[in-house]
Amino acid sequence: MKSFLYKIIKVRELSILILMVAYFLFVGSINSQFTNSNTIVLLVNGSIILLVMAIGQSFVLLTANIDVSIGSIMGLSAAVCGTLLASGANLGVVVFSVICVGAVIGFVNGIGVSYLKIPAIIMTLGMLGVVRGLMLLYTKGMWIENIPNYYKKIARIEILSIPFPVWIGVFLVLIAYLFLTKTKFGRYFYAVGDNTDGAQLLGLPVNTVKVLAFILSGLSAAIAGLIFVMNIGFVSNQTGSGMELQVIAAAVLGGVALTGGMGSVIGAGLGAIFFTVINSSLVFMKIPAYWNSAISGLLLILIVVGDSRFQKYLKERSRQNQKNSLGENDREKQSKAIP
C-alpha cells in the first residue's frame, strides 16, 4: 500500500497521460475525426516548438529556478536562422550559429543567477527585454520571408509517416530523459532543486548545475527557433513573444513543480502536447476558437489546484503511516525493555 502511494507521487506523468487520453476520448466521442491518427500526428507536430522549449525549461524548473527569457531567445534564434539562410549560408553554419546564440544567452542567465545571486525571475526578465531588443535591432523590425525552399521542405520530410520535427522532439525528450534519470550528473539537477543546502554540503557542483540548466534552456529555445523557421517559413518581428508563459504553463501541466526537484521531461513534453490538444480540440467540438485560452486557463487552474490537494492528501497519508509504524517501534522497544 505504502509503495503504491510512493509510486503515484513518482509517476506524475502517468496521470497527465491518463487525463490526456480521457480528453481525447471525450472529444473523439463528439467528433470521431479527432481520434484519427492523422489528426494526432498533426497535433503533435503543432506542439513541437512548445515541447522542445518545455524540455529545456524543465531543467531550470528542476533546480527551482525559472527562465522567462526563452520566448525572446526563440525569437532571436529564429531571426538569426532566417537571415543566415536567406543570405545563402551553409546549413551547418546556420545550425551552429543559432545554437551558439541560445547557449551564450543561457550561459549569461546562468552566471547571473548562480554567481551573482540575482533571483532567476529578475535575471531572465531583464534578459527577456535585452534579447527582444537585440532581435528587433538585428532584424530592424522587419519580417524575414525569403527562406530558401530546401529548408522549409525539411519540415515535410516524413520518416515512418511521421514528420521530421516530431522526430527531433522525440529524440530530444529521450536524450534529456536518459540524461536526467540514468546519469549521475543528471540526478544532480533534481538534488539541487530538492534541497540546495543539502546538495552544497554533499559537495555537489551546485553552481555548475544551475548554469548548465540555463544553458540547456537557452539551447532548447534555439532549437525551437530552428524548427519554427522550418515549420512556419517566415519570421515575424513578434516571433516567440508570450511563449515563455505558455512553456511554463505546459511544464506545470505536465507535473513539473516550480518548487524544484519534482517532475520529468516526459511529463513536460506531455504537458506541451496536452496544452496544444486543448487548444486544437475546440474546432472539433464546434466551439468557436476564441474559447481557447479561457478553457486552457481554466483547465490549468483546475489541474494545478487539484494536484496540490492530492499531494497534500498523499503527504498526510504517508505521515499517518509513518506515525503508525513509529508507534509499533516504540511498543516493540518497550516490550524489549521490560524483561
Binding site: I9, Y190, A191, D194, N195, D197, G198, A199, G261
Partner: peptide, 11 residues
C-alpha cells in the same frame, strides 16, 4: 551529520 538533516524530500 548536521543538526538539521539535509535530506532530499523527493528522492
Amino acid at each position: 551529520v548536521p543538526q538539521e538533516p539535509l535530506v532530499f524530500p523527493n528522492m
